[in-house]
Nucleic acid binder design. Sequence first.
DNA 1: CGAACTGTTGAGAGGCTTCAAGCCTAGTGG
DNA 2: CCACTAGGCTTGAAGCCTCTCAACAGTTCG
Lengths: 239, 239
Amino acid sequence: MELFVHKKRWRHPAINQELSLNEVPQFKHLTENELLHIELNSTQISYKKGIVIYREGTRHSGIYCIAKGIVKIYKIGPNGKPQIIRFAKKGDFIAYQSLLTNELASTSAKTSEDTVVYHIPYQVLLHLLQSNWRFTHEMMKIACIELRQSNTFVTDLAQKSVRERTAEILLFLRDQFGLDMNNALQIKVTRKDLANMVGTVPESLIRVMSEFKSEKLLAYPGRKIVFLNLQKLLTIANS
Amino acid sequence: MELFVHKKRWRHPAINQELSLNEVPQFKHLTENELLHIELNSTQISYKKGIVIYREGTRHSGIYCIAKGIVKIYKIGPNGKPQIIRFAKKGDFIAYQSLLTNELASTSAKTSEDTVVYHIPYQVLLHLLQSNWRFTHEMMKIACIELRQSNTFVTDLAQKSVRERTAEILLFLRDQFGLDMNNALQIKVTRKDLANMVGTVPESLIRVMSEFKSEKLLAYPGRKIVFLNLQKLLTIANS
DNA sequence: CGAACTGTTGAGAGGCTTCAAGCCTAGTGG
DNA sequence: CCACTAGGCTTGAAGCCTCTCAACAGTTCG
């Protein structure tokens, strides 16, 4: 505990603890009855690392809220190659997009580490959306924010170099998952996955990271990624 | 009129006529009172071609629904270069994303041709969202569908070649804007804008289009783009 | 303890961009 | 109404960024 005392802007405390339903930010405006209704009608499911929660092309039966762990959301590309769309973490909703449009799932979801989720059946979600505007507004916000991020990333892919995008993705992961007291990224990502997010091949990503290393912007002891110069990385990312 | 008789799956009839508010698909579930309330509280605005409706970084005062014309939605990239996100047409809503998240506009909007829009003030929209679930659901669907498209395009940019993406974008524009009786694309886009959407430079786009032309997949007399072999283009796009 | 996967570096190839030049089209102003 | 000019379109040549292929070290896990 004491380790965290000096950490300012600590955004992801107690990351190993399970989130309970009433701690989900989007549920804060729910009445006790509404919350109870969810608790009674949703199921908690545990997955080991590397398990597929749902697969592209199937139909969702409900929405998932992550209580613990990290889930990789990805699309299958034209040659069967997966493309990572995002990493969802504790408190995030997944599967809402296709559920709300009543389409088949446009992405797949696989656990990146041991994960616990709440599965909220469609009818329960629908009832909630119809009865509680503030919750509905929060859900709309989630979709719109993800849309903004996606549009930003389209712009980056179209206009930035691999070097710039690498800095960008590293900083994005830092925003999403935070750093520990040693400035190390709080999520484990393989080079292959990192390269995939950047929109390149592992070899190219590694070359850029080697540059960053020799420029003293990064260090990577073991499988950690340590940020040494955020300011410079920001400059590279936004150039 | 008779020209259209033989056209099957004609998806964009009377494209030059203004859409009235009660013809907007998302408004079909509104009560008469709700519709009246919108009509009384929204303003119709006409823009000449090439006018900026709103600019990235500003705050929206309401949502726009396009009654006539085409609006280019774009983001400013890292070097000040615009990146086209989409072309919005008659019946489409724009500016909803930042309005719903209460953020500053993340995109700009400029008319690509003479355009008429309805401006619906935020408070009016908010009232509608709170009172009519079916409308709200439609709005959520819009955001989610755009999100799916954006994610798909991220995957394409990361994994497909310029040739593949060019075929893809041409087919996408065909889906969105349709073809006339000569199989010509029903939207005028400059090579520069096309290249931008594909995520390349005009020179590269033109080379690919020249290939398509010599392969008898496309023709472009004047400034039209005529589709000669949709099947082959589909193969190229999805390869 | 080996198999399979991840991470890393080098060399070579190639797709794409950049730069340059010319033609064409459309819109403007006299 | 026409000349003019700015911007759109097109092609060629050169160079570079990125990918591909290959080899090997390190790591994880059954």
